[in-house]
């Protein structure tokens, strides 16, 4: 075995150790929620439609700036129960596509410091999957540190047609082409 090979092995070993170390470190930097809140709002000439979901799940890793969000489509509740049925049955096809998911990263001017209660403005970027269609999105959000918990909020617009959600012509005046989505995630430290 040559000197060079030995050296390479050593470096690989060091990297692996480093990665493992980082991996264990990351445990404490993860925050988790399973009952956070999301809302969507559609403003159209004939009616405004609003739905609320209190089963939003997410993990955020403040060491790696990663964030994943998942929400069951059937978790959205509407004022009119028939609207909820149509939302699931005709528009979102929630038996085929039960979840909406987001996987992405955020960037913040200063890294998040859990020891101080402050609010950080962040840019979130990643892939949003709705109705089986994945699109990349980016939006502004806020992360607030509050006594070792995190509260992340964001609002963005989703173009219904982008996600192949068909609206029949008869309902054009009832449903907006762009729907406003607001998310409020209340994280607790993650315990595995």
């Amino acid at each position: 075995m040559t000197q060079k090979n030995m050296k390479l092995k050593e470096t690989i070993f060091t990297i692996l150790m480093l990665l493992m170390f980082l991996g264990t470190q990351a445990q404490d930097s993860k925050f988790f929620t399973k009952d956070s809140y999301a809302k969507f709002y559609s403003e159209a000439p004939l009616e405004n439609i609003e739905a609320h979901n209190e089963q939003v799940q997410s993990i955020i890793d403040i060491a790696k700036n990663d964030v994943v969000i998942s929400m069951p489509i059937t978790g959205f509740t509407f004022e009119k129960s028939l609207m909820q049925e149509h939302f699931n049955e005709n528009y979102m096809e929630s038996d085929k596509f039960p979840k909406a998911e987001f996987q992405g990263v955020y960037t913040s001017a200063t890294p998040i410091d859990m020891s101080k209660n402050t609010t950080y403005e962040v840019m979130v970027k990643g892939n949003l999957t709705i109705h089986g269609v994945t699109k990349s999105i980016s939006t502004k959000g806020y992360i607030k540190v509050e006594n070792n918990t995190l509260i992340a909020t964001t609002t963005f617009f989703v173009k219904v047609a982008d996600y192949k959600i068909e609206i029949p012509r008869i309902s054009f005046k009832n449903i907006a082409e762009e729907v406003e989505v607001s998310v409020e995630l209340k994280y607790q430290p993650f315990k595995s």
């Binding site: 993990i59 059937t74 049925e85 038996d95 996987q103 990263v105 990643g126």
Partner: peptide
């Protein structure tokens, strides 16, 4: 891989939902 792992980790945390047959 990290984000995929994170999504897998998230899915592990949550109970499988009950999907009722609508309509």
């Amino acid at each position: 891989a990290q984000q995929d792992d994170l999504m897998a980790l998230l899915n592990d945390q949550v109970e499988e939902p009950i999907n009722y047959a609508e309509a």
